[in-house]
Design a protein around this nucleic acid. Structure first.
Lengths: 125, 125
DNA sequence: GTCCTTGCAAATCATTTGCAGGCAC
DNA sequence: GTGCCTGCAAATGATTTGCAAGGAC
């Protein structure tokens, strides 16, 4: 059975408090602020654990590293190409609408998609 | 001024012949088939060169590595989560429509976006 | 006490950098 | 000959793995 460890509780709390997709580095820094100094291996394994449970979800902005955020209602992000600030975006029309068309034109059965926007935040414009 | 080298010509031809986004590894393999054995550093630098000229465009499926394809009309992809086969997708309605809404709700000025689909190809279903 | 968790060191993988030598023009 | 191109080795950064020790229940 799963165990309630310090790192686990702290990471869940960090994800809960931070609405922004976090890198492993971000997480380790925030754990330090909580007076926890786990090995990065532990953090990677805990990420995998929470991800497998579906509690967190991976996001990739093509930065060469993954980010993770608490799993919640389907949404997208816009990331500032200068300062990397991230904001959520919700599109009213769902892209899933195109499923039948994708099946027809490609033969693929779509399961999920990733849609991320890039731009300039208010400060960096 | 730019020079016409064997690797440069071969890579351009490879991108032209292959409609699918290629990894560095893919490119090196295909160069070998063309009896070229360049150092991977050379390939990375050539990718950067062609990318800076805008001749090729980077694509990221969250695989932990980048892919590149010949630059052409805006489109998206669907990748098979099992065998990694990739197919193009064109959506009639452009997502740029949401720009003004994004500006209003987030304060960000959107510049580009990445939209990739994941699913199962005909064989893997 | 059992077995999940953790730490540490080392390995793996994609990508980058510094520097010296090589080739296109 | 000049200046871009290339190779090689080593560095960097993210992520993974093996194994032995530690801690939750």
């Amino acid at each position: 059975m799963y165990k309630t460890t310090k790192v686990r509780s702290a990471m869940l709390e960090i994800f809960t408090r931070n609405p922004t997709p976090l890198t492993t580095r971000d997480i380790i820094l925030k754990l330090k602020q909580n007076h926890l100094n786990p090995n990065k291996t532990t953090v990677y394994r805990e990420i995998e654990f929470l991800n497998n449970l579906g509690l967190i979800t991976g996001v990739d902005f093509g930065e060469g590293k993954k980010r993770y955020e608490l799993t919640r209602k389907h949404h997208h992000h816009i990331i500032c190409i200068k300062c990397k600030t991230i904001k959520d975006i919700s599109l009213e029309k769902d892209l899933g609408l195109d499923s039948s068309k994708i099946i027809k034109t490609t033969g693929f059965k779509p399961i999920s998609h990733s849609l991320e926007f890039f731009g300039l935040c208010k400060n960096c414009q």
